[in-house]
Nucleic acid binder design. Structure first.
Ligand SMILES: [Mn+2]
Ligand SMILES: [Mn+2]
Ligand SMILES: [Zn+2]
Ligand SMILES: [Zn+2]
Lengths: 148, 148
DNA sequence: TTTGCTTCAGAAAATGATTTTCCATAGGAG
DNA sequence: CTCCTATGGAAAATCATTTTCTGAAGCAAA
């Protein structure tokens, strides 16, 4: 029973096994999964699970503000983040990984935005993208996708 | 002749009228347009313009690092930003507007990420989303932007 | 338990933004 | 002018995401 399932219940939605499982993955994973990733991770446990169910649940959670979306990470799919605290996400455009990065300054930034923008802030999408350390190393002899 | 067209030329690409026009819109607009917005804006000038041409050009510019993408703003389309300097973008999830927000702290954040992450940073996507002041005033009514 | 109403998951079809394919042509090099 | 490659545009394809439809639960009252 985590923050997400509690939120669903408080909204009057039924806590079906599928929804609970999706919430569990979101709450426990640190890899900012896509709908497809969650689907494949749950398929062994729910052989008849439908991708539509995953998408529907994710959309419910998002519309309730219980999860954020980071946009695509070079793989053409939406990545979800259940960590609502202000933080930086690092995207590697080669291996499409998404990891968190701790930087205290970001809290002050969020406060500045909330106080000075006049917006009713609902969430943030703070992403820096580039090459992760591992892909930088492998990149010295990397695949050049230009010119033939 | 702006930074974008210069970049295209230096890359050995031809400066066709379509590409120049697309670069001009990107360099001069502050509204973070989508491919569709650019297409409609240029249609009077180029009646035979194809959306595919717009997408192709945008992808070239992006792959060269001359523009950034902010992800969707609630309208299901990718928004482009030609301003590469570190800055905050404010998205209104109701009217789907995207505006810049000046906050000096963000420069320090970028420096911290570059120095401590180990990543080869190529760009950033810093977006706060919520309701803009105007949409806040207009209350909970939906689809208020295009009034009758 | 039975009845009646509502919600849900899943399969399939639809949607729509973006990409790809194909081809006639423009334009640079020689 | 003649080759040759890069380009724009029309149309088709792709593919992540959404919607539709339907039978099966869940739930509560009798
Ligand atoms: Mn995160
Ligand atoms: Mn901007
Ligand atoms: Zn990587
Ligand atoms: Zn607004």
């Amino acid at each position: 029973m985590n923050r997400l399932t509690i939120g669903l219940k408080q909204a009057g939605l039924r806590l079906t096994p599928q929804r609970v499982a999706i919430c569990k993955i979101l709450a426990e994973s640190k890899d900012h999964p896509t709908a497809m990733m969650i689907y494949h991770q749950l398929l062994p446990q729910f052989p008849t699970l439908s991708l539509a169910t995953v998408y529907k649940t994710l959309n419910v959670l998002k519309s309730m503000g219980l999860v954020h979306t980071l946009g695509d990470a070079g793989d053409g799919a939406e990545h979800f983040d259940a960590d609502l605290t202000p933080h930086i996400n690092l995207v590697c455009v080669r291996c499409n990984s998404v990891v968190d990065f701790d930087e205290g300054l970001i809290h002050a930034v969020q406060q500045a935005v909330e106080q000075r923008s006049g917006y009713e802030i609902q969430g943030a999408r703070i992403v820096y993208y580039g090459l992760c350390p591992q892909c930088r190393v492998n990149g010295t002899a990397k695949q050049q996708e230009s010119a033939q």
